[in-house]
Amino acid sequence: METLEHIIAEHPFFAGLESYYTNLLTGCATNVRFDGGTYIFKEGEEANEFYLIRAGRVALEIFAPQRKPIMLATLGEGEILGWSWLLPPYQWKLHAHALEPVRAIALDGKCLRAKCEQNHDLGYEVLKRFARIVEQRLEATRLQLLDVYAVGRS
């Protein structure tokens, strides 16, 4: 049987993490499922966890008055969803919309923050991984911002 710890250790986000730490993380983890079409979280809600996506796709959306919701990015298998749990005020800044049935591991933010405070080595490993995700998404956002396929820009 696949244990939670095994699933966490196998997820690309935690690739290469020593088993001592995956064991620590498992203490904060829960297996979760979301039906397609539902919202995993919404903007403004308290950000108490993040998700290791195992299957299914999630859209990050934002609403603006007088406009249709804007889909900023989609996430899928092997990716992580959410970093608002990491920094105050621990609130979601986007909607996370399950486009299909989603299976994920939820990691409890408070639990994880406490463990990282106690064990800075664990904290550093977690932060390093989040920093890479943030960098990749910032890079993608920059490219998106360039609107490279538009015509007639000067």
């Binding site: 859209a59 919701p69 889909m71 990015a73 990716e79 486009l99 993608a140 490219l143 998106q144 396929y149």
Partner: peptide
């Protein structure tokens, strides 16, 4: 396939082409 700007009727990927490498 992915698009930079997806509408809500689009059920494919949203994000620049480089975001597909991870799949």
């Amino acid at each position: 396939a992915t698009v930079d700007y997806g509408g809500l009727n689009w059920h494919g990927n949203v994000g620049v082409v480089t975001t597909l490498f991870k799949y």
